[in-house]
Simulated scan of single mutants.
Amino acid sequence: MFELYSPVKILASVATTLSFGYSSGLVTRTSVNTWYPTLIKPWFTPPNKLFPIAWSSLYLVMGIAAGIVWSHASKGNKLAATGLKHFAVQFGLNMLWSYLFFGLKSPGLGLIEVTALWFSIYKTWSVFTLVDPTAGWLMVPYLSWVSYATVLNASIWWLNR
Protein backbone atom coordinates (compact mmCIF):
# COMPACT_ATOMS: atom_id res chain seq x y z
CA MET A 1 0.00 0.00 0.00
CA PHE A 2 1.24 3.50 -0.89
CA GLU A 3 2.13 5.52 2.17
CA LEU A 4 1.35 9.20 1.65
CA TYR A 5 2.87 10.54 4.85
CA SER A 6 5.98 9.38 6.61
CA PRO A 7 5.32 8.79 10.33
CA VAL A 8 9.06 9.13 10.97
CA LYS A 9 9.17 12.55 9.31
CA ILE A 10 6.08 13.67 11.19
CA LEU A 11 7.48 12.49 14.55
CA ALA A 12 10.86 14.10 13.82
CA SER A 13 9.16 17.38 12.89
CA VAL A 14 6.98 17.34 16.01
CA ALA A 15 9.99 16.60 18.22
CA THR A 16 11.95 19.41 16.58
CA THR A 17 9.20 22.02 16.88
CA LEU A 18 8.48 21.08 20.49
CA SER A 19 12.20 21.15 21.37
CA PHE A 20 12.89 24.49 19.73
CA GLY A 21 9.65 25.89 21.12
CA TYR A 22 10.67 24.82 24.60
CA SER A 23 14.09 26.42 24.20
CA SER A 24 12.59 29.74 23.07
CA GLY A 25 10.30 29.56 26.10
CA LEU A 26 13.34 29.59 28.36
CA VAL A 27 13.87 33.25 27.44
CA THR A 28 10.40 34.12 28.71
CA ARG A 29 10.51 32.37 32.08
CA THR A 30 12.26 35.04 34.13
CA SER A 31 10.45 37.97 32.52
CA VAL A 32 7.02 36.36 32.86
CA ASN A 33 7.39 36.44 36.63
CA THR A 34 9.25 39.75 36.98
CA TRP A 35 8.85 42.26 34.13
CA TYR A 36 5.63 41.11 32.40
CA PRO A 37 3.42 41.55 35.51
CA THR A 38 4.47 45.22 35.68
CA LEU A 39 3.02 45.98 32.24
CA ILE A 40 -0.42 47.44 31.67
CA LYS A 41 -2.30 44.83 29.67
CA PRO A 42 -5.62 44.98 27.79
CA TRP A 43 -8.76 43.33 29.14
CA PHE A 44 -8.47 40.46 26.64
CA THR A 45 -5.08 39.25 27.92
CA PRO A 46 -5.32 35.55 28.73
CA PRO A 47 -4.01 34.17 32.02
CA ASN A 48 -0.31 33.30 31.96
CA LYS A 49 -1.02 29.59 32.48
CA LEU A 50 -2.77 29.47 29.09
CA PHE A 51 0.33 30.39 27.09
CA PRO A 52 2.36 27.17 27.56
CA ILE A 53 -0.71 25.07 26.78
CA ALA A 54 -1.50 27.08 23.67
CA TRP A 55 2.07 27.09 22.40
CA SER A 56 2.64 23.40 23.07
CA SER A 57 -0.52 22.59 21.11
CA LEU A 58 0.51 24.91 18.29
CA TYR A 59 4.02 23.45 18.09
CA LEU A 60 2.47 19.99 17.91
CA VAL A 61 0.20 20.80 14.95
CA MET A 62 2.94 22.86 13.27
CA GLY A 63 5.22 19.84 13.52
CA ILE A 64 2.60 17.56 12.02
CA ALA A 65 2.07 20.01 9.14
CA ALA A 66 5.81 20.28 8.51
CA GLY A 67 6.15 16.48 8.62
CA ILE A 68 3.39 16.10 6.03
CA VAL A 69 5.07 18.62 3.73
CA TRP A 70 8.46 17.00 4.34
CA SER A 71 6.92 13.69 3.23
CA HIS A 72 6.04 15.34 -0.08
CA ALA A 73 9.45 17.03 -0.37
CA SER A 74 11.25 13.72 0.04
CA LYS A 75 9.37 12.49 -3.04
CA GLY A 76 10.84 15.31 -5.12
CA ASN A 77 8.07 17.89 -4.76
CA LYS A 78 9.90 21.19 -5.27
CA LEU A 79 7.01 23.28 -3.94
CA ALA A 80 7.12 21.22 -0.74
CA ALA A 81 10.84 21.97 -0.42
CA THR A 82 10.03 25.66 -0.82
CA GLY A 83 7.33 25.33 1.83
CA LEU A 84 9.83 23.86 4.26
CA LYS A 85 12.16 26.81 3.67
CA HIS A 86 9.31 29.18 4.47
CA PHE A 87 8.53 27.09 7.55
CA ALA A 88 12.13 27.40 8.76
CA VAL A 89 12.06 31.18 8.31
CA GLN A 90 8.78 31.63 10.16
CA PHE A 91 9.95 29.34 12.93
CA GLY A 92 13.13 31.37 13.33
CA LEU A 93 11.01 34.51 13.54
CA ASN A 94 8.78 32.77 16.08
CA MET A 95 11.76 32.13 18.32
CA LEU A 96 13.13 35.65 17.80
CA TRP A 97 9.91 37.22 19.06
CA SER A 98 10.39 35.70 22.54
CA TYR A 99 13.88 37.16 22.71
CA LEU A 100 12.79 40.64 21.56
CA PHE A 101 9.62 40.93 23.64
CA PHE A 102 10.67 39.12 26.82
CA GLY A 103 14.47 38.97 26.62
CA LEU A 104 14.99 42.60 25.62
CA LYS A 105 11.72 43.65 27.30
CA SER A 106 10.70 45.50 24.16
CA PRO A 107 7.03 45.39 23.13
CA GLY A 108 7.91 47.80 20.28
CA LEU A 109 10.50 45.51 18.73
CA GLY A 110 8.20 42.59 19.43
CA LEU A 111 5.42 44.31 17.51
CA ILE A 112 7.59 44.95 14.47
CA GLU A 113 8.82 41.37 14.56
CA VAL A 114 5.43 39.71 15.16
CA THR A 115 4.08 41.57 12.13
CA ALA A 116 6.87 40.08 10.00
CA LEU A 117 6.16 36.72 11.64
CA TRP A 118 2.48 36.93 10.68
CA PHE A 119 3.32 37.53 7.02
CA SER A 120 5.86 34.71 7.10
CA ILE A 121 3.31 32.31 8.58
CA TYR A 122 0.78 33.40 5.96
CA LYS A 123 3.28 32.63 3.19
CA THR A 124 4.05 29.25 4.78
CA TRP A 125 0.34 28.49 5.06
CA SER A 126 -0.29 29.41 1.43
CA VAL A 127 2.49 27.12 0.16
CA PHE A 128 1.59 24.29 2.55
CA THR A 129 -2.02 24.49 1.35
CA LEU A 130 -0.90 24.05 -2.26
CA VAL A 131 1.30 21.10 -1.34
CA ASP A 132 -1.25 19.33 0.86
CA PRO A 133 -4.54 20.85 2.08
CA THR A 134 -4.30 18.96 5.38
CA ALA A 135 -0.95 20.61 6.11
CA GLY A 136 -2.49 23.98 5.27
CA TRP A 137 -5.43 23.44 7.61
CA LEU A 138 -3.06 22.43 10.40
CA MET A 139 -1.39 25.84 10.13
CA VAL A 140 -4.68 27.75 10.57
CA PRO A 141 -4.74 27.62 14.41
CA TYR A 142 -1.18 28.97 14.47
CA LEU A 143 -2.00 31.78 12.06
CA SER A 144 -5.10 32.58 14.11
CA TRP A 145 -3.20 32.62 17.40
CA VAL A 146 -0.46 34.85 15.99
CA SER A 147 -3.16 37.19 14.63
CA TYR A 148 -4.50 37.45 18.18
CA ALA A 149 -0.96 37.74 19.60
CA THR A 150 -0.22 40.60 17.20
CA VAL A 151 -3.23 42.55 18.48
CA LEU A 152 -2.25 41.74 22.07
CA ASN A 153 1.36 42.83 21.45
CA ALA A 154 0.17 46.06 19.79
CA SER A 155 -2.14 46.77 22.72
CA ILE A 156 0.60 46.18 25.27
CA TRP A 157 2.94 48.43 23.33
CA TRP A 158 0.28 51.16 23.10
CA LEU A 159 -0.64 50.98 26.79
CA ASN A 160 3.00 51.07 27.93
CA ARG A 161 4.63 53.56 25.54
Rank of each mutant, 00 (worst) to 15 (best):
K123S: 09
S144A: 15
V151R: 11
A154N: 09
W97T: 12
T129M: 12
L111P: 00
F128M: 02
L130K: 15
P141M: 07
V114M: 00
S147K: 03
W118H: 06
S98A: 14
I112Y: 04
I156H: 05
G136W: 09
L100C: 11
L117H: 04
F128A: 01
A135G: 14
W137V: 15
V140Y: 05
S126H: 13
V146G: 02
F102T: 10
G136D: 11
P141A: 11
T115M: 01
V127H: 00
Y148C: 08
A116F: 13
T150K: 05
L152F: 07
P133K: 13
V146L: 03
A135L: 12
V127S: 04
S147R: 04
L152S: 02
S98V: 09
A154F: 15
A116K: 03
G103F: 01
I112L: 15
K105H: 11
V114G: 01
A154I: 10
P133M: 08
T115A: 04
Y122T: 10
V127I: 15
Y142L: 07
L100W: 06
S155E: 12
W125H: 15
Y142W: 10
W145C: 08
S155T: 09
V131C: 02
P133R: 13
T150F: 02
F101D: 02
I121K: 00
P141Y: 00
I121G: 00
G108W: 03
L152C: 07
G108M: 09
Y99C: 01
L130H: 14
K123P: 05
F128Y: 08
Y148W: 13
D132W: 04
Y148N: 12
A154D: 09
T124E: 10
A135T: 14
E113S: 02
V127K: 00
S155V: 08
G136I: 10
W97K: 09
F119A: 07
M139I: 13
P133Q: 11
P107H: 05
W137Y: 15
G110I: 12
L100I: 15
M139D: 03
T115K: 01
I156E: 00
L138Y: 12
G110Q: 12
Y122A: 14
L138H: 12
K105P: 02
W118G: 03
L143M: 06
W145P: 08
A135V: 14
F128G: 02
S144C: 11
V131L: 06
A116T: 10
L152D: 05
L111T: 13
L100G: 06
W125D: 08
A135H: 14
G108N: 07
V146N: 06
I112H: 01
